[in-house]
Amino acid sequence: MTLPNEVLLALRPTHSPPVRQLIEQAGVDVSGWAVDKNGEEIPNPNTNTYKNSQWTFGGSGEPIVVCVWWKDLAVKGDHLSHDGSSKGYSKDLGNALAAPDRTSSEAQRLRGKIVKAHAFDRAVYEASSKELPLRMVVLDGETPDEEDSAQVSARASKRLLDDADWYAHTYDPFSGNYELVRGIPPVHAPPPDPFGGAEDPAEDPAFQQFLADAPLSETEKDALIKARVGQGWFRDVLVKRWRGCAVTNCTDSALLIASHILPWRLCTTRVERLGVSNGLLLAPHIDKAFDIGLISFDDAFRILISEKMRKGDEIALNIHPGMTLKSREHSDIRPFLKRHREEIFQAPARVLTTR
């Protein structure tokens, strides 16, 4: 019987076959590698830079293949494991992207990594929810320190396709934490999808790649996401929960906007992107002021008005210190309101006196 430590050593790559060759060996259709992301033909598909740089392949009826660094594999008892957190990594990348001195090339590199991290999360989610095996491409090479992730991309100099199946033993849709185990199928049924298969733009690779590449500001990208998310399942559950604007007396849902408390671009799991606890149904002027951080709400659901909001605009828009979120029952929104105050709200708040 081969010991786990011996298996781990045997999985350290010593050669560098083309990524395309390994993906094809895993059973994934690689015909699309013959053209680049702009539709131009590539004489040698093995040199498709865009495809070679992805972290996941297949899925949706094809075998699921994930790329993992050898250094991130670990022996646990009698088996090999790979543990991670898609939320933690994506959040770190998002924080790096938000740095004020970020150059355009650094921002594009970070957005690309965020897209790939979301795709990795989708792959693990699919394997967990459908009880499917994963194939693993093990990589060895140079990986940048976390603080250098905006300036440097990882470089895999050696790689191999593990001949064993891996399985998602755990996947938490709230935290993004997961554990992949080599060769041992899970013995428990996966938890049901709390969102009933609702469409999530983060699960559309084409849309995600468009957002990463498009020469648009973060505000413009947020507007595109809001327009898409705000027409489906997320909007429906907010309409049902709030039964009108969460702040004003407007009850015509056709006039209201489904708004994320923590912006979609900062969300890293399906729970954050689709969960009703991260949403408010708002009149357009309240939504805009909330989106750009001119207003927020405290833990008692009372409005906070930024000092950066002009007094005349407050009066014109009828935004005033007496405003609150209508329902006090939805305590599950407090963690998201806290993050909104910390990451979006343009503090400090004006000292408020009711009129």
Results as ranks from 00 to 15, higher is better:
1 M>I: 11
6 E>F: 08
10 A>K: 14
16 S>C: 11
19 V>M: 13
21 Q>D: 12
26 A>K: 05
27 G>S: 07
39 G>A: 09
43 P>I: 08
43 P>L: 14
43 P>R: 10
46 N>T: 11
48 N>W: 05
49 T>M: 13
51 K>T: 07
52 N>W: 03
54 Q>E: 12
59 G>T: 08
62 E>Q: 15
64 I>Q: 07
65 V>G: 10
66 V>C: 10
70 W>K: 02
71 K>P: 00
76 K>H: 06
79 H>I: 08
80 L>D: 02
83 D>L: 00
85 S>F: 04
86 S>P: 01
91 K>S: 15
93 L>M: 11
96 A>G: 09
98 A>E: 08
100 P>Q: 00
100 P>W: 01
102 R>A: 03
108 Q>A: 09
115 V>F: 09
116 K>R: 12
118 H>P: 06
125 Y>R: 15
126 E>W: 00
131 E>Y: 06
132 L>K: 10
132 L>Q: 07
135 R>P: 06
136 M>Y: 02
136 M>E: 03
137 V>G: 06
138 V>N: 11
140 D>H: 03
141 G>V: 06
142 E>P: 08
143 T>R: 13
143 T>P: 00
149 S>A: 12
149 S>N: 04
151 Q>P: 01
153 S>E: 06
153 S>P: 01
163 D>Q: 14
164 A>R: 12
166 W>H: 03
168 A>W: 02
169 H>G: 10
171 Y>P: 09
171 Y>T: 02
173 P>S: 14
173 P>I: 14
173 P>W: 10
174 F>E: 15
175 S>V: 12
175 S>N: 13
178 Y>R: 04
179 E>G: 00
182 R>E: 02
183 G>H: 06
185 P>W: 00
187 V>T: 14
189 A>Y: 08
193 D>C: 13
202 A>W: 08
214 A>Q: 15
219 T>P: 00
222 D>H: 08
223 A>G: 02
227 A>M: 07
230 G>F: 01
232 G>Y: 04
234 F>Y: 15
235 R>F: 01
237 V>P: 04
239 V>R: 05
240 K>F: 00
241 R>G: 07
243 R>L: 12
244 G>M: 03
248 T>D: 06
251 T>V: 06
255 L>I: 05
259 S>L: 04
265 R>P: 01
265 R>S: 12
266 L>V: 09
270 R>K: 13
275 G>Y: 09
276 V>D: 02
277 S>R: 07
278 N>M: 10
280 L>W: 05
281 L>C: 04
284 P>D: 10
288 K>Y: 05
289 A>I: 01
298 D>F: 02
300 A>D: 15
302 R>K: 15
302 R>W: 09
302 R>N: 15
306 S>Q: 09
309 M>G: 04
321 P>A: 13
330 H>D: 06
331 S>L: 14
338 K>S: 15
341 R>G: 07
342 E>V: 00
345 F>L: 10
347 A>C: 01
347 A>W: 04
350 R>C: 05
350 R>Y: 03
352 L>S: 11
354 T>Q: 04
355 R>T: 13
